[in-house]
Every structure is written in structure tokens, then in C-alpha cells.
Computed example of a mutant assay.
Amino acid sequence: MVKTLSITLFALTLFRSAGCSDDARETVRTTDCGPVIQVRDPMPRLTSDAYTVVGASADGLCLSVTISATGCSSEPWRVALHTDGAVAESSPTQTTALLVFDDGVGENEMTCQAIIEETYQFDLGPYLADALPTTFSLTGTETTVEIKPE
């Protein structure tokens, strides 16, 4: 009985996974700094829930971004950083990334109207290790960070 139940659950898991897109199953590598920026060329169509960048800073290749959004808590929030990998050859170089925010609330669901702030960190190392110094911009916001070699 237990063996049959285990096999059934395993088969169901495989069946559900098969219907997911590659993006949904993608694993994000993390370091001590946080999730590694996702370099994807070409960039897929990515949508984001509403948020505001409160501030951003860099400590070496570790980017910290503080965002605010409405909600009951930041616990269901998911944030990812994506780039197409392009580096504009100027002095300093210019680079961009898209911060994708999911508030964890369904499209037609209600949420609290409290404004909450949370800080997220991202490892830019795989993307920017050879492109410093750079002016790093978050697409769709007026946020830029000067990142210099250590």
C-alpha cells in the first residue's frame, strides 16, 4: 500500500512538472551575497507586480536593493534580478538589469494596503566580474549604482 502510494505520488509529481515551463522549473543559484543575477539572452517577457525602489547600493559585486510595496507582509514576496548580459563599452561601462517582483497575491485577490519595505541582495559576480567599473541601472526605475573594483 505504502509502495503504491509512493509510486503514485512520484508519478503525479512528474506529470505536474512536465506541464511547467522551463522558467518555472529553473533553479536559481545563491551565494553568501544572495541569489546570483540571471543572465538570459534573449530576455524572456517578464512581468512584475507594482513596487518602488527605495534605495540601492553595492558592496563589491553584492547589490542591495530596498523596495516598498503594499501588502500584509513581505513573506510571500519573490524577487529576481535578470539581465541580457550586455555591457556597453564606455568608461565606465554601462550595464542594466530588470528587477522582477511578485507580491504573492493573485490577480483578483485582495491584500492589505500597508506599505512594507524589504531589502534584497543579489550577487552580480558572474555578470560583472570583468566589466568594472560600471554604472549599473535597474530598468524601469530611476535607480543607478556606481560599482567600482575592490
Rank of each mutant, 00 (worst) to 15 (best):
D130G: 04
L98W: 04
T31W: 01
Q113G: 13
V28F: 08
C33E: 08
L5R: 12
T141A: 05
G71H: 04
R16I: 15
F136K: 06
L81I: 07
G19Q: 11
V54M: 04
C72Y: 07
S64H: 13
Q94R: 15
P35Y: 03
D32S: 14
M1I: 08
T83R: 01
I7H: 08
D84A: 07
I115Q: 12
E109K: 02
I147R: 02
V2E: 15
A80D: 12
E26Y: 00
P42D: 05
K148N: 14
Y127I: 05
T27F: 08
T135V: 15
T27H: 09
E89T: 10
D103I: 01
T93F: 08
M1Y: 09
A58H: 06
F10L: 15
C72W: 08
S68Y: 00
L9G: 01
C20L: 15
A97G: 06
T4S: 13
S90W: 05
A131M: 06
T47I: 09
T95S: 15
T93N: 14
R45W: 04
T4F: 10
H82A: 10
D49T: 07
T27Y: 04
P126I: 11
H82N: 09
R25F: 07
T27W: 05
S64F: 03
D102F: 00
R16Y: 13
Y51K: 03
S74H: 14
V105I: 15
A56H: 02
I37S: 00
P149G: 07
Q113R: 12
Y127H: 10
A114K: 07
A97N: 03
L98N: 06
C20I: 00
C72A: 15
E118R: 14
T13E: 08
A56K: 02
T66P: 06
P92I: 07
C62N: 06
P42A: 04
T52A: 11
A97S: 12
T66M: 07
A56I: 04
I37V: 15
G19F: 11
I116W: 02
T4C: 08
A86E: 13
A114H: 09
T111I: 00
D130I: 00
T143Y: 01
G85V: 05
T119Q: 10
T13Y: 13
E109F: 09
V54L: 02
T141K: 04
G34R: 00
V28Y: 07
P133C: 06
R25P: 00
T47F: 08
E107W: 09
T52D: 14
R25Y: 04
D84Q: 06
Y51G: 04
Q113H: 09
A69R: 02
A56N: 02
V28P: 01
T52E: 15
G85L: 03
D59W: 00
A56S: 12
D103S: 11
N108A: 12
D41R: 09
A114T: 11
M1S: 14
I37F: 02
L81E: 06
G85I: 05
G60T: 04
S21F: 03
S64Y: 05
T144P: 00
P126S: 14
I116Y: 02
